[in-house]
Design a protein around this nucleic acid. Structure first.
Lengths: 332, 332
DNA sequence: AACATAAATGAAAGCGCTTTCATTGTTTGT
DNA sequence: ACAAACAATGAAAGCGCTTTCATTTATGTT
């Protein structure tokens, strides 16, 4: 592996000049530049990025922490983030936090230990105070799917309230009036917001939110099954679930109770997971702009930390979108 | 950030001794060790891994190239690989190859440019010659889902032939005798192997493979739909598909043709994708031991490159497994 | 032509470690 | 008790770059 010395020697210049040609931040005469570039080519020179990192105190690494590496949501986001970073020659170091305070903190410490220049975090469990303290430590990071008012400019979130609204609106627009709801765990911010949006849609349509038609689920398929079982004592023609897993669970139970889907019951999910296109009937759901969020979080880092400006302006909240499939029908 | 000098000073030893305490490969007296350790704790010392890398010519980075970062198969594998590596203090640098020769090569060059100590590759397009040349360049790597005889010890593959066999066997065991098959693209090794296994199962049961009951698909949902449409002119009670996407496509078409699933037609998929649990009826399929393969590929690297021995012995081929769900029924 | 100014360049220090080699202090064998 | 062997340690070089600062070279001005 050729070093900068050999390039300098072959080009007949000092290694400082070679370095300047590489980095392009200081002027170098055309003549020297040409000599250096041809020497680099001749030697097949590739800079040692480790040495560069040590000397410049820049690693060009960005740490990415997500709840899980597997799972459609995060893997899709990772894909977007990685390619945005790679485009600018930055390396993504990824790790998982598993929705657990200790593991998330450990993950962050791990990434910091890797001397990442910046972090992109999707956290579930860590407290705001911890994150604010991290900011104070001058660790640049952007936050996905979680908003802290004090540092709102680096938070990239989806309007879950609006998503909840759209999901309810979808069945309201089909003429449904008795609408059940299976919500997510209340400790999750997104679950609370989705429920709020749901209530807003009902109110707007002049419908009252009936606690008897509300089941508090856990975001898992089982929660959907149990939710339907409990709710089945009530009468309703539409069921909105706070995520797709619970929606499929509810479908399962509904069918077990002898319902013909979607004729006897309209169902709406949330997240537009890959499998939503494969359920029977295919699931009407709400799609989060994951790609946009991930890409924006990456761009924020590129801009703030590396001073790489995009033409695109940074914005922080993203709108969810209704995806209509076959699981809802006009109320008859 | 404290440096090794400050630790040495506080501990009253030379920095060489501090380094030795950290690395643990040279004997240090108990007294010195204790002094150093308490100094490290007092200063909150964290070694600068960049400097370590430069000095030791070891980056502790492992590059991971997969076809796609999104998608259940790879994201799950990534999760396993990452955690196996992290356990030993290695960092995974990930990137995607998008099943394209140029992009895969670019990805490998990128990872090499990151000075990874080793690579873990899942490639689709790159030629064996290229990979053999890479080995000659003394780049240590392990290969997932692809076998090259010359370097078989670093190849970790699933027995796709056996998987194809198991899929066919599942419906044969249910008493089906007229069995259709939708295969994957022939340029893919796994697709060919699955088909071979299918034929073997038929032969073993004394059934002949009928080309009229064979549709050459493309691994996509559409391929499944078109496949069923074409095959529907024939008479058969079971349909085996070379992957889950095509199976769901076929389900869709079958239902469109008025069939009652699984009563009128038993269907088997392959891959056990997440959505296989959500189709209706839920899909009987073949599960690849992705986690095991990923973990083994990581262990190979840990052992060969970092001399970290596990108790576990390395083995190279993995057995697929039949997952029985509701999409197949006894032939009546 | 002589000078002031600006542009290009090189020498060298330094980034924070690892590791070699020489040195010191401690055992062991006779 | 003394040489021989060994264990523990420190000094210093080196990993391949960036960057500062001093120096040289080119350019413009009168």
């Amino acid at each position: 592996m050729a070093t900068i010395y050999q390039v300098a020697e072959l080009a007949g210049v000092s290694l400082a000049t070679v370095s300047r040609v590489m980095n392009g931040n200081v002027k170098v005469s055309e003549k020297s530049r040409a000599k250096v570039q041809s020497a680099m080519k001749e030697l097949g020179y590739q800079p040692n990025i480790i040495a560069q990192s040590l000397a410049s105190n820049r690693t060009n690494r960005v740490g990415v922490l997500v709840s899980e590496l597997s799972g459609p949501f995060f893997s899709y986001m990772l894909a977007v983030v990685e390619s945005a970073l790679r485009e600018e020659g930055k390396h993504a170091i990824i790790t998982a936090g598993h929705s657990d305070v200790a593991k998330e903190q450990e993950g962050i410490e791990f990434l910091l230990g890797c001397r990442c220049d910046a972090l992109i975090l999707h956290i579930d469990a860590i407290s705001d105070e911890y994150l604010l303290k991290l900011k104070e430590r001058n660790v640049p990071f952007s936050l996905i799917n979680h908003r802290i008012d004090e540092i709102a400019d680096c938070c990239f979130t989806v309007d879950n309230e609006q998503g909840g609204y759209l999901a309810a609106k979808a069945v309201i627009d089909c003429g449904h009036t008795r609408i059940a709801y299976i919500s997510g765990p209340e400790f999750k911010e997104d679950a609370r917001m989705r429920l709020n949006g749901h209530k807003r849609a009902l109110a707007e349509a002049g419908l009252t939110f009936d606690e008897a038609l509300h089941y508090r689920g856990n975001y898992n398929e089982d929660g959907g099954k149990e939710g339907f079982d409990q709710l089945s004592e009530q009468r309703f023609s539409a069921l909105v679930c706070a995520n797709d897993e619970m929606a499929t669970g509810a479908m399962y139970s509904a069918r077990k109770h002898g319902l013909d889907l979607p004729h006897d019951l309209s169902i709406v999910g949330y997240d537009d997971q890959v499998f939503a296109r494969y359920t029977y009937p295919t699931l009407t759901t709400i799609k989060n702009p994951i790609a946009e969020m991930g890409s924006m979080a990456a761009k924020w880092v590129l801009k703030e930390v590396y001073n790489i400006n995009t033409t695109e302006t940074i914005h922080n909240t993203f709108e969810p979108k209704l995806i209509i499939r076959n699981s809802i029908e006009e109320n008859t």
